[in-house]
Amino acid sequence: MSDLAFAAPPTGAATFLRRALRNRSFVTGLAITALVALVALVSFFWTPYDITHLPVAERMKPPSASNLFGTDHFGRDIFSMIMIGSRNSIAVALIAVGIGMGIGVPLGCAAAARGGWLDEAVMRFNDIVFAFPALLSAIMITAIFGPGAVNAIIAIGIFNIPVFARVARAGALALWPREFIMAARVAGKGAARITVEHILPNIVSLLLVQGTIQFALGILAEAGLSYVGLGAQPPMPSWGRMLFDAQTRMMVAPHLALFPGFAIVITVLGLNLLGDGLRDLLDPRLNRER
């Protein structure tokens, strides 16, 4: 029980905000994440250059006032590419978290509520999925359907299912023997109703923290998949693919490899800081003494 961060008792929104603003990880993480989200949104309306236009004469220019991050081997503006590439990273990772939560949380809650064979089945299912790293699933899916961003989503999403199932199950299992659940059972409430009314609200913070972690891991995994050509396909820009293109030209133009990498690191760092901050804020162990 003590190793799980359950929801802190609700306090006033103002107190929570004050504590949140004092938490450095949370504030930095939130700021970075918001910035990345903003960049992705802005890219729908405006980018410094049109990346469908290929001014080959301008190719592989180092960073300058007109091209902040320089240009790539087709003369496209790298800053604009990174802006548009952020959409792909965010979409893939976010949908994959959605798949993982949408299937994993009900599975984990059901396993904890029913126990017995269902619990055993969910655990064994977890074992099997854990044996297929996202990259191997992606390889198999790509072998069937050919490469594409959707494959990356499915592969990463499948891998997220047991992660969320595990977290939800562990959280729910720690709650079921608690006395307030017993009180609800004495009141005649069924397992499904108890899960919705009592279990879920108390594991939301666990899921939220895990969600940010999986989001960050999803960005990394997507970059890896598109780097080896199993993710988003050109001409759609993606950070991983940009790094692949940069690799062969690194001797001549190292900046090609620098900026997409920074984009990944900063996004993942922001999400991880946000997750750490959330964990601190929602962990009752740290604010029990009040």
């Binding site: 960050a216 990394l220 970059a223 890896g224 780097y227 991983g240 790094l243 940069a246 690799q247 690194m250 001797m251 190292p254 490899a257 997409p260 990498g261 990944i264 690191v265 900063i266 993942v268 760092l269 991880n272 800081l273 750490d276």
Partner: peptide, 22 residues
């Protein structure tokens, strides 16, 4: 370590190649 967690291994590899090999 917080930064290390955020670095994709293949990008780290590219940087290492650039630094140690090139």
């Amino acid at each position: 370590s917080q930064i290390g967690v955020a670095i994709p291994n293949f990008w780290f590899a590219l940087l290492l190649v650039y630094l140690f090999a090139v």
